[in-house]
Write a protein that binds this DNA or RNA. Sequence first.
DNA 1: TTGCTTATTGGTCGCACACTCAATAGCATC
DNA 2: GATGCTATTGAGTGTGCGACCAATAAGCAA
Lengths: 210, 210
Amino acid sequence: MTSSVQRKRIRKSPDDRRAEIVEAAATVALTEGLECITLRRIAEQLDVRPGLISHYFPAVEDLVAEAFGSAATAELETLLPADPPDGSALNHLARFFARTTGPAYDDMSRLWLNARHLSRYRPVLRERVLGQESLWRGRLGGVVQAGVDQGEFRTEDAELTAVRILVVIDGLASHANTGLGNHPSAVIRLAAATAERELGLTDGALALPE
Amino acid sequence: MTSSVQRKRIRKSPDDRRAEIVEAAATVALTEGLECITLRRIAEQLDVRPGLISHYFPAVEDLVAEAFGSAATAELETLLPADPPDGSALNHLARFFARTTGPAYDDMSRLWLNARHLSRYRPVLRERVLGQESLWRGRLGGVVQAGVDQGEFRTEDAELTAVRILVVIDGLASHANTGLGNHPSAVIRLAAATAERELGLTDGALALPE
DNA sequence: TTGCTTATTGGTCGCACACTCAATAGCATC
DNA sequence: GATGCTATTGAGTGTGCGACCAATAAGCAA
């Protein structure tokens, strides 16, 4: 049941086609998982032949890594934009926790979990994961440091604090496939609570008002 | 290059054979990963034909779940034995952290990560993971409660404290395939530090002397 | 309109996987 | 030593995967 009975070839510029492939793969990665990125699956999604995917990505592993990088970069951008909008660092952090510990982040939790496991067998992906970790750590560390500079936060080492926060978030994310819903809110709040403690804030300071 | 040129069948009791298969699968799970549990791989390890594995486990997914359960149960037993040896709860916890945050636990970290991801696609495994989580939570909660009863620890909810500790351990474990070695010890100690805080202990109280 | 570059196709190969089942042979029992 | 039960084998099925490559046609430039 291919969409068109008789296919008409559509010829695109290599850059466009490549971008299109990566985008499709990123979507599959987020919704179905990295191991579902196969030549056939992506080709079907774009209504082209599998050989074309091979043409742009002679080794599938490279596409998998690219897809993860694309999805993670996009998520980070909505999570902690590179060019900071106005507002206090505290507010940025509060929004950060609201999203990372909410259902909107579930797919991303699954993706991180997926990528971290698959890194065991895929060196290219592993490098990409390490790169994204560093990116996320730097971005979060920047917000923390900004808060310190503004006098909102207190911590000795902004980067270290960022890592600690991310570790807790990873811990919560581990349960994305086995029922995050089981956790009482006291567990979910562990992430923000850790941050509040690390940053010398009062309990609940990072909770977003409903 | 099968080990024996002409194979001589060895006939075992179903119980023995089954146990042998699960044990082999658990070893593969710990060293190579759950997706390496294939009929061929396990059969080769035991020097039998793949069909025999199928005979005992008509669906491979059941063997995968069994292998995970077996490995996790064994690890928990060395980590927090069911029949508690003598010694203070504080000492038990200190040993618990020494192991869970040390290199001896790396394979187990990978296995949890592996199982949590694979649970996305394998319902039987997911149930097994949930069962083990509950087992670990209960066992750790028991030690915490014992410490509270002895007056060593202070916490309102032993079970909740156990979950928080386990979440942090999961967070650290997420990095098992992407270089745990990169973490400064200040990050590794996050697990024990969280416990110390939750339990009203002084910093370093759960660190084991060299 | 024609020609040419090259993006895209279609077909194929080899491999690894889970699963099935009739035939075989180990071994406990007599 | 013979017999019967059944644990074990061997052979085969179908599926999905990545990778490869000659043939084809889209669409730009002349």
